[in-house]
Design a protein around this nucleic acid. Sequence first.
RNA 1: GCGGAAGUGGCGGAACUGGUAGACGCGCUAGACUUAGGAUCUAGUCCCGAAAGGGGUGGGGGUUCGAGUCCCCCCUUUCGCACCA
Length: 846
Amino acid sequence: MRREVDPFRPHEHEPRWQELWRREGLDRTPEPPRDKRYVLEMLPYPSGDIHIGHFRNYTIGDVVARFERMRGHDVLHPFGWDAFGLPAENAAITRGIQPAEWTYKNIETSRATLQRMGLSYDWDREVVTCRADYYKFTQWMFLLLHRRGLAYRARAAVNWCPVDQTVLANEHVVDGCCWRHPGVPVEKRELEQWFFKITDYAQRLLDDLDKLPDWPESTVKMQRSWIGRSEGAEVTFQVPGWATASGHGEGVTVFTTRPDTLWGATFLTLAPEHRMVERVTTPDRRAEVEAYVAAARKKTDIERSDLSRQKDGVFTGAYAINPVTHDPIPIWVADYVLGGYGTGAIMGVPAHDERDFAFARAYGLPLKVVVQPRDQDAPRLDAETMTEAWSGDGAMVDSPPFDGTSAPQGIPQVIAWLAERKIGRAKVQFRLRDWLISRQRYWGCPIPMIHCPQCGVVPVPEEQLPIELPAHVESFIPTGRSPLEDVAEFINTTCPQCAGPAKRDPDTMDTFVDSSWYMLRYVDAHNDREPFSKERAKEWLPIDLYIGGDEHATGHLLYSRFFTKVLFDAGWVPVEEPATRLFHHGMVADALGETMSKSKGNVVSPGTLFEKDGVDVPRLAMLFFAPSDAEILWSEAGIEGARRFVYRLWETMLATIADPRFAGTSGNPGAAIDPATLSRGAREAWRLVHRALERTTQACERDLAFNTAVAAFMEWINAARRVGEPGEWSAADFPSLAAAVRIVAQAIAPLAPHLGEELWKRSGGEESVFRAGWPQVDPAALKKDTVEVPIQVNGKLRSRVYLAPDASKEEMEQAALLDEKVRELLAGKPPRRVVVVPGRLVNVVA
RNA sequence: GCGGAAGUGGCGGAACUGGUAGACGCGCUAGACUUAGGAUCUAGUCCCGAAAGGGGUGGGGGUUCGAGUCCCCCCUUUCGCACCA
């Protein structure tokens, strides 16, 4: 027989508690903090409304933030918007509204949804990257980098998206296509652009990965290979015709990781864009070489990097001198050599490099074996008959004076020897390229630089910041030049140095610049003199938990590390790394496993979920679905279990509170419960409350696997209901149920905040549950009175006995050997061995 | 090719440092209450078998009293990177 209780009405209590939290400033950031926790989720781009993936991400962060507050920490949990970017311009083009208008409207919509979700953000510190009060300091950052020699202008072959009509950073080229337009190959253009010199920090970005033990290893590895350090040597090959023409030291310099194979270099290859191609090419070869270079330039990255394609190239007619054998070797041009890596030229060692081998065989170039594998590894190599390159270990041969030296272990000796003779030198090469940040677009942060015909490129003086983006421009239709060039009142200015007429830089910054430092702005979001004060930075940094998708592993997460290091060097922040712990939440896909996207039309809006069940039910469902780092396939069916659970919990807890005996159990009841006085069922329920509490604590502190925490609460409610309706609980047992109700109200509050608050208040809580502290796990409650001890015979489960959890080894062994089943299987013979694991099991080896 | 992650019931997923595989939930089956139920409650639900028993965590070996967990070799899926010399 069930007792009638007030119905569960989330739509009534959720707004009530949100209002209370707002009124009491529960989510405000204490200042200055005593024992701080900085919990941050990656800021979203406001494209319409929040979707279900955001719902998941922010829920995870919210659970931790609320938990940390309950534990007594001072928490910074802010929110912001990565509000510059192309979709706003595209919307402007298709719908005829201004990017700003579209963006702010989306922010309003999304913010309303977030507030409907009751997320515990300190909205007072909200950051919007497209607002001048923010981008003023993005410009400040640019000037800082410029001052420190880390922002420079260069003409370079850059990635060009033909759809967006703008350049792209390497990180935004995915499979040779623009990241925003899969299937549209990126083109190459020769342009003068702004770069950030992230390569200056390559070594530190690499080294400091070791200081991030709480970052996912996959991301650390990805950054490592993205930075791509390799050690080797630069070696210069003289080109005879030039030595006389332009003095000493001219030649072609190559980078190699295998200088020990230099004796086997039988040709040189230049990338088509190598600056010396034109100079080395002999007149008779000119036409052919020029045609090849022109064709290579037209190729897209995908075409050039197609591995299945036959390697091709063209002979320049010129020869270089191998500096160790003094043999003349032909110079070729081939597009399998990358212009942007190393020196853009390589030495061809066909016997010991797979790619050179393929190239040499294709064009009949000679092979020379200079490393012989040890006998046990492979048969003796012969240049005539080899079918593949040998890039393994061996002994150097035909390489005086190094014959017999082991390769590649002998590399340091070879480098030293080369350096002594001024032929080469040790060189560390990184794959990381400098970060191209100019964009020929309107909706971004203007670059605070001025082009003066007299003084050249001049930085805008700091006191003139912000350089505001004009509110209106004629057209956003991409033309390949920035729309700002056509805004006279923006583009025309005076030179800060000579006061003469000058022009502003018409480009805007990559939006990843905006998001590279936003986490620092939160610590002092209203500061209008500085990006943030050094004191606030010292108080709050680093981020203790940073949550976001792993798609940012080599983009944002590398850029923000770079910015943090620059700011550290400049004395602005006390940390060299922005976040000590990084967590990648799993994606939310639809039931078919497709990632949700507007174009696929499978986006589930969380708003419709809230209409039906309020926030906490879908929130619990989301948390229960899977561990936070696993991908989930969202389905309505998943909500069913959470809904039933909440109703059952509600019913039992309210019936308990309504019981006349409840009022007499206030105080600090948990500590007063002695499990030994409880009936079997009540004792089990009491144990499970503490188990749920423990599991929630661990999940918040460690793995964020809230699925098992929710499951633990389910186990408790199931056990409590097995005992009976609250009214049926005996006088001896009832206090433990009453205590459990209070503990559950608190412990479930991070997971289901409105429900927790409602239950807490109904159970007599005076102030907010989020000020009520975090309950202690009682070890006595966790102890089982008896444990089921499995009895194995030869490792197979044969029987069970019930013993006290602290039964001695001897007692356990005794119990096992007395077991009927065991005696039967032993058939009177003594066991050969008995393995006893205290409190766990007994294995009788017959 | 290189690097990462992962393969457990019909499904999502549990399983602490090697110690009862399948917690919790969805779904399903049966029953109860109901005019009815897609509500709720009770029981059952890894597979084979009537039972006793046997088998079982992608496959194959191994270590161990004992392996989802550790080691070796494969297979599959997935995500990064990819002619980086």
